[in-house]
Design a protein around this nucleic acid. Sequence first.
DNA 1: CTGAAAGCGCTTACAG
DNA 2: CTGAAAGCGCTTACAG
Lengths: 364, 364
Amino acid sequence: LSSIDKRVTLAQVARVAGVSKTTVSVVLNGGAEALGIRAATQAQVLDAASSLGYSPNYAARMLRRGRTGILTLLVNQLANPVFVDMALTARAAAESGGYDLEVVDAGAIEAEVRALEHLRGGRADGVMVATGRHHGRRPAVDRLLDLVGQGMPAVVLIDQSPDPRVPAIRADVFGGSLEAVRHLVALGHRRIGHVTLHGAGDIAAARSELTDEPSSLGDRYRGYRQALAEADIPLDDSLLARGPDTLAGGGEAMRQLLALDSPPTAVFVFNDLPAIGAIRACFEVGVRVPDDLAIVALGGVELGAYVTPALTSVRIPAVDMANQAVQMLFDVMTGGVSNVDRVLPARLLVRESCGATRRGGVQS
Amino acid sequence: LSSIDKRVTLAQVARVAGVSKTTVSVVLNGGAEALGIRAATQAQVLDAASSLGYSPNYAARMLRRGRTGILTLLVNQLANPVFVDMALTARAAAESGGYDLEVVDAGAIEAEVRALEHLRGGRADGVMVATGRHHGRRPAVDRLLDLVGQGMPAVVLIDQSPDPRVPAIRADVFGGSLEAVRHLVALGHRRIGHVTLHGAGDIAAARSELTDEPSSLGDRYRGYRQALAEADIPLDDSLLARGPDTLAGGGEAMRQLLALDSPPTAVFVFNDLPAIGAIRACFEVGVRVPDDLAIVALGGVELGAYVTPALTSVRIPAVDMANQAVQMLFDVMTGGVSNVDRVLPARLLVRESCGATRRGGVQS
DNA sequence: CTGAAAGCGCTTACAG
DNA sequence: CTGAAAGCGCTTACAG
């Protein structure tokens, strides 16, 4: 019972229409006018095709044409609305260029490597990678560069370009983070914590990695650090907490910070979802946000405007990034473009969780 | 500059290894032992393949084998975490069965129809439809049944089965809604509103559609109505508000209800996201939830446990639904199964927004 | 133990 | 204006 059972082929249409396969193919692909195929013949073909319910076999067409008509987007985490926005926008952009978009949640590094290896078999005509894992010498980068070496057009989002052949687009996460923490400083905070993604090593290893790696996680940390330095606030490792990139993860990290002998009065959280988890953790412990503790985050998703207090957050322009990434990919596919590393501004959206404003309308 | 440029073929591997294409194919597909191919030959093939960086062409394999190795899942809305959970779970289940999963956000009916028509070209070996649009005589249903008639294995989630050849699985939305509204009644509420999805016609048309259509939206309404009837509370159309299935949409609908001369003291919202929007709208207007107004919803996503007040909601077992749907699809593909219409329980998760409990730990 | 050949369903030069 | 033929890159009977 395979789906191929009752499938109609072009040859059958040709037989029913009483013409050759060539004619059917030409008519169905809209080349009839150019080749001057008689109107009556066209009608026969069209009739036969629709009465048989013909639709062209995708695999055969793909093989013959040497292209798939598909673009693939690898995202970090579909649970994060930033990536949903990105995916939906990229799909629309791809479709308006005549391509389908396939979205893969490559949250785990293994998933990303597997997806990239899959692509080697020619499952897509181009790939966009928005996993935030394409800095340094990582397995994912190597797989991507393999693909590129093989001729696959590629674009990187979030990270800097790993290679001159791969244009990249990202938000100015450093600048946005700097602005966010400066905002906290301006509100009078001096004891400011930072929640970042959990990593492998101890806190010292984490700090040195955040200091050196050209990742967006590093950009957050460096923005934080610079804002503190500008205000002559010494860095305090005990104020650096780590957790998974989830609602629960942000809650855990916040509880750690709250349990300190000298807890922070403000915290900069690496993503919106963990920040929402952090706000909730404060509520459960009886710490009032923003009165007792200010929270700012990075992401700027619409959801943040709907929690209470509404989340002050640096807005990542996911829609712009996606649109431009697709355009860049088209540019690569049509031959040109190299050494592109575009950075989009990321501005702070001041809402309620930082204490700068009080209950107002929804600002998104 | 096509991605096909530098692609290595099986023929090249055969040439380098000094054997035939047959041998290469057999060795690479793991049939070497069964056919007793000499170890030395195997090694030559493996060496040649890896030194050339060979990976089999996907389109060619698909065409030749007559199968794609892909399952497609159409979801209603990726912005709703229920569908993200469903997609991630289904992907894992599909992969453990040797298939890839392709997820399509078919929020708009046109997107769904397009995706379904695409599938006619043989882009997948099976399809799962979780759009909530497969009841009655709708264009989407017709396209799906076309596909099924052509031999495509299919499973429907959310809606009832549209055809004996298409097994279906859904949550007991009627039962869950009944329980939710009974809960409000038990808390002493008599003036209970319902927020549902905006439709085409006026409120009378909406009510009659909700009464008659075997949709999950109808199930919500009928659960609501029955709970009221059990408590001898008369139906009041002015308490039926409609809005889009978004954060903002729930806010709008709630504002309508709040603007009534005699506003409700409790509201049952059709999905979690609009319910979160409704809670926020209350906050902005100065209506305290749950003290002034109780809110219950349907969805039961983790996020609801992190907003404040935490959202009381009927839990849709997205993970179970997805796992079982994939299993059902496998069953269809391997020949059997007809007339299946499975219903999973959907129980109320009492959190804070209904006023039955006060600030506790996170309950998800 | 291994190879030559056919064929999956298309598209596209090439003839006429 | 239309058709016969080749070929995209695989897999799989079938020979030997």
